Simulated scan of single mutants.
Amino acid sequence: MAEDQRNSPKLLIGIIGGLGVLVALFFAYQWFTSPVEELAPVYDTVASEASSQPTSEASTEETAASEINLQEASAVEANHATQSKPLVTDDILTAPIPENASLAKEEQARLADLQEQLAEQEKTLKAQHADADQLIKLKEEQLKLLEQQLAQEH
């Protein structure tokens, strides 16, 4: 190429435009292949929570309750994802014990991993239960405050 062709603004714009099209195609591919169905219930829950909030003065309890609702919604979605495939099946009880030592070690490692997953799931469920209890408490306080506001208005 000649010196004039390498410094041509048309060539530079063409290269930048081509790269822009490639980036746009990449993001379009990512967008079309993303699982939208999994995210829809969370957004619906958030939208319904936002629309059900009173327009009057928002207290810190209400803000905390909405944050907990968001956390619970994401935890419920994660719980649904883990419930689709069971961690423990009945064939564990009837499975034969491997006679080869290396296979037995692999089986022990697999069962230890399974036990860790179950312990983690138990921990998550206990945390969700505690969050639900706290949410119920905050909702009761919110109802009391709303009843007081209604009583003051009348």
Results as ranks from 00 to 15, higher is better:
residue 26 F to E: 06
residue 26 F to C: 10
residue 27 F to R: 03
residue 28 A to C: 13
residue 29 Y to C: 11
residue 29 Y to S: 11
residue 30 Q to R: 15
residue 30 Q to A: 15
residue 30 Q to G: 14
residue 31 W to Y: 15
residue 32 F to Y: 14
residue 33 T to I: 07
residue 36 V to E: 13
residue 38 E to Y: 13
residue 38 E to F: 15
residue 38 E to A: 15
residue 39 L to K: 14
residue 41 P to A: 01
residue 41 P to I: 01
residue 42 V to G: 08
residue 44 D to S: 14
residue 44 D to C: 12
residue 45 T to L: 13
residue 45 T to G: 02
residue 45 T to N: 09
residue 46 V to C: 08
residue 46 V to F: 06
residue 48 S to Y: 09
residue 50 A to Y: 09
residue 52 S to D: 06
residue 52 S to I: 05
residue 53 Q to L: 14
residue 54 P to R: 09
residue 55 T to K: 09
residue 56 S to L: 13
residue 57 E to T: 01
residue 57 E to F: 09
residue 58 A to I: 11
residue 58 A to D: 10
residue 60 T to L: 14
residue 61 E to W: 04
residue 62 E to S: 10
residue 63 T to M: 12
residue 63 T to V: 07
residue 64 A to V: 09
residue 67 E to H: 02
residue 68 I to D: 04
residue 68 I to K: 02
residue 69 N to D: 07
residue 70 L to V: 07
residue 74 S to L: 09
residue 74 S to D: 02
residue 75 A to R: 06
residue 76 V to Q: 11
residue 76 V to N: 02
residue 76 V to A: 11
residue 77 E to A: 15
residue 78 A to N: 03
residue 78 A to L: 02
residue 81 A to V: 10
residue 83 Q to P: 03
residue 83 Q to E: 12
residue 83 Q to F: 03
residue 83 Q to I: 03
residue 87 L to V: 08
residue 88 V to H: 04
residue 88 V to D: 02
residue 89 T to S: 15
residue 89 T to H: 12
residue 89 T to L: 13
residue 90 D to C: 13
residue 91 D to A: 08
residue 91 D to I: 12
residue 92 I to Y: 10
residue 95 A to L: 04
residue 95 A to R: 02
residue 96 P to T: 03
residue 100 N to G: 01
residue 101 A to Q: 12
residue 101 A to V: 12
residue 102 S to Q: 12
residue 104 A to N: 09
residue 104 A to F: 12
residue 104 A to S: 05
residue 105 K to F: 11
residue 105 K to S: 10
residue 108 Q to R: 14
residue 109 A to P: 00
residue 109 A to H: 08
residue 113 D to Q: 11
residue 116 E to N: 07
residue 116 E to S: 13
residue 116 E to K: 14
residue 116 E to M: 06
residue 117 Q to T: 03
residue 117 Q to A: 06
residue 121 Q to A: 06
residue 122 E to Y: 07
residue 122 E to V: 00
residue 123 K to R: 05
residue 124 T to S: 04
residue 126 K to Y: 00
residue 127 A to R: 01
residue 127 A to E: 07
residue 128 Q to G: 05
residue 130 A to R: 03
residue 130 A to L: 06
residue 132 A to Y: 07
residue 133 D to L: 10
residue 133 D to G: 04
residue 134 Q to M: 00
residue 134 Q to L: 04
residue 135 L to Q: 01
residue 135 L to G: 03
residue 136 I to Q: 06
residue 136 I to N: 08
residue 137 K to H: 10
residue 138 L to S: 00
residue 138 L to E: 08
residue 138 L to V: 08
residue 139 K to L: 08
residue 139 K to G: 03
residue 140 E to N: 12
residue 140 E to Q: 10
residue 140 E to V: 05
residue 140 E to R: 08
residue 143 L to M: 13
residue 143 L to W: 10
residue 144 K to H: 06
